[in-house]
Design a protein around this nucleic acid. Sequence first.
RNA 1: GCAGAGGUGGCGGAGUGGUUAACGCGCUGGGCUGAGGGCCCAGUCCUUAGUGGAUCGCAGGUUCGAAUCCUGUCCUCUGCACCA
Length: 949
Amino acid sequence: MADDTPPFRYTATLADDIELRWQDWWDEHGTFETPNPTGPLGDAATTQARGEKLFVLDMFPYPSGTGLHVGHPLGFIGTDVFARFKRMTGHNVLHTMGFDAFGLPAEQFAVETGQHPAITTDENVATYRRQLRRLGLAHDPRRGVSTTDPAYYRWTQWIFNQIFNAWYDAEADRARPIAELIAEFESGTRAVPDGRAWSALSPGEQADIVNDHRLAYVSEAPVNWCPGLGTVVANEEVTADGRSDRGNFPVFKRNMRQWMMRITAYADRLIDDLDVLDWSDAIKTMQRNWIGKSHGADVDFQVTTTSGDAATITVFTTRPDTLFGASFMVLSPEHPLVGELTTPEQATIVADYQQAAAAKKDVDRQDETREKTGVFTGSYATNPINGEVIPVWIADYVLMGYGTGAIMAVPCGDARDFEFARTFGLPIPAIQQPPDAWFEAHEIAPTLDTEQWPEAFVGDAPYVQSSNDTLDLNGITTKDEGIALVNAWLESHESGQATITYKLRDWLFSRQRYWGEPFPIVYDSDGRPHSLPDDMLPVELPETDSFSPRTFEPDDEFSNPESPLDRLEWWVDVELDLGDGVQRYRRDTNVMPQWAGSCWYELRYLDPTNENRFVGAEVEEYWMGPRTDQRPDHPGGVDLYVGGVEHAVLHLLYARFWHKVLFDLGHLTSKEPYARLFNQGYVQAAAYQDERGIYVDATKVDGNPDDGFTLDGRPVSREWGKMGKSLKNAVSPDDMYAEYGADTLRLYEMATGPLDASRPWETRDVVGMYRFLQRLWRNLVDEDSGDLVVVDTPADDDTITLLHRTIDVVRTEMDALRFNTAIAKLIELNNHVTKLDATPREIAEPMVLMLAPLVPHVAEELWAKLGHDDTLTYEGFPTADPARLIDDTVEVPVQINGKLRSRIVVATDADQATIEAAALADDAVVTALAGGAPKKVIVVPRRMVNVVV
RNA sequence: GCAGAGGUGGCGGAGUGGUUAACGCGCUGGGCUGAGGGCCCAGUCCUUAGUGGAUCGCAGGUUCGAAUCCUGUCCUCUGCACCA
């Protein structure tokens, strides 16, 4: 900077001074502390005075070791602007931020640096807090919880116990305390599964039955074992190509004894309640797809095993109406009946096929482009609906993990079955008459001879060749009707039943890692789990230096998980009195997955210091209770939740599940955690790769799109990607603070586009918003003296009108989270003020207030210079005078044949005839008419006139 | 393949039946300033320079009038994917 820069110009240095000063002021005055109606943070009077409640929430940030980049705070700034705006329009706004600090990446970072994860986590959190504070976010600092704090995870463990000590009553369609289940067994109102009397069971047998009902249960089941991570992971954490979400290691299906959460009990409610959520259809669709509910039927096919016994193959189908077209069956190679159905002649070929299928990686098995493969078992089954004897095959396109692991193949109506039948020369009977248009599209004449069909017909069409002695579908045209008739027939003939299946599996909840919440569970000498009572919580994570998990070669499928906690014999072995006198127990050595802490954090924000309850009942009802005043079916929950789409199925599904359990058990009044979800876009940035395809540091690249890009003289190629460490294109907010200040950064991020759109980061564009703030500053402050230059003389009429129009638009746009257009309007107003001889106070004050949510520091500073001695946080947002929104006269475009030819000025309330007369008198129109009469004149008052000649 | 979102100046984006292109960046010229930077003004599709013409992925259509509505088509992004 040169010496002659005016001392009070709005420079980065001045911005830095203003911003730090106001951040301290806000902290000292507790400006952003939000009162609760009651409880530890209770202040009923202030709560009342602040106005209607509003809970604004950002997705729980995970404090990574590399600190923030400018892409992270996009949503944080958006929620801050919105929350500040709402404070100024009479709302009691709750907005805070804590940290999701447990989990794999924290632990991996700790392993890399050799530091204990507790230390690195604390450092990372401190860095995040510093960087976020520097942005001027108006968070209530008292509520910023961390999941790694024992005072926090004490309640995470308490919630686990609630889930453990609950079961799902399918009849009541809700979770209930496990004690009520035991009471039902004891009283005999609920029958014991094997029919014996409850009192006849040993205590151990009783415990096993009860444990089988719990919402959190230990089970030996196929799980995703990831040797590269040394832990099992949930289905949701496995990518489509069978690798781990974190680390991209191979994942293997293995039977292991693990903790599961019975999320499947909630499948229907998780789908149905999507209807009452204000979420995007895209996210709702993703959740529905993940839950994957499909209606269909289980159909029983009778077979005779090679040893002559009768057996039943049950298949699941969504199209029982096509049963008449089932011409063969296909079992998964892993299906338990395969052995008994394989004839000696086929034994070798079947065994070979099974072996080949087992050896295939999931990746290969899911490659749909490959040829259909499969082998015949040698056995035949009977189609229950028409008595046809059909061959039983095995093929790896049928998966054991879905439905029953067996399908009936209806090749005429299913693309895969069709392809399979063609490949192996199996019959393809037609059971529907496709419409003529279908044949035309395939350029063949209509025929039921499927030999001529190029592919399966999938859709609604009249059934043909679909009848037996007691059922006739022929002529029926809708599949719903067909399904209903076949289902009824199957049930009355005891050959099957209507049923529903889900793709959703129970949630695998345990991890063999160190950096997570320990389970509040111990095992007795029989190996049965017991939850620890409240007064033994929290179960603190034990101190140890050996926090690294045992990991394996990523493809070492048959390795076994070893939890770091297993090694801590002093901690694992305990003597406790759980009611039956002091006994020895072994602690559970798993830890919870990272999702646990984020399943309920929004509830702890409400009442972070409550030591008696995870959240006070009245506090929860105040902040999250159903807003039936807004709409009758409002489920309750956070008023605005902002975050990226990447959590569409993981976090959002898990959190909804926990919330519903807590709701069922009577701990909450809201039945959903997040009433409104808004998905922000991402900040993308140019990333560069060298000739080897390795990403290089984007800040060191020279060049431009026309001449190409280089690094140290060598060419590099450019692409756009999500900003982050892996693409080496991160820009730190610290650099932006230093160069322009936080207000400029905030403004730039909000101005580059609507909040839900992804946008490229261009550091060189930031200067535009910096200049805007400089012009704003100069309109109010003398750059040489620092004195206010605002005058108390009234503003002229045009300026006042512009002010009110700006207020009108800015209010609407901010309320709708469209900050980019609000900023554009404010720039226009400021540009107009720039042209005035002096800035009238009656313009300056509302302009500063309107800018306050966006650029709070400079707004506070100007507000103070304008003579106010308190923060503007709770000042009323300016209100537009409706009379100022309408002019006396209006300029109306005059079109001739739809082309703009002239403009006329008429009174705003002029009637059609007056406007038409004025238009016809216009020179351009007179010329165009050349003395003739117009064919037609269209007049839209206040909008336009169109003269057709 | 299926589903969803989207294609607007050199760039990010406004505008969703009525004056197309708000606001910002970049670029060009001029002015102020000792240079730099900054600020101010004008311009930035074509143009024979006209109160001219074209234009919102492409092609049709509806309408007095289309970026906006409809049909088809191409492309991009996101999600799902042998799910029975």
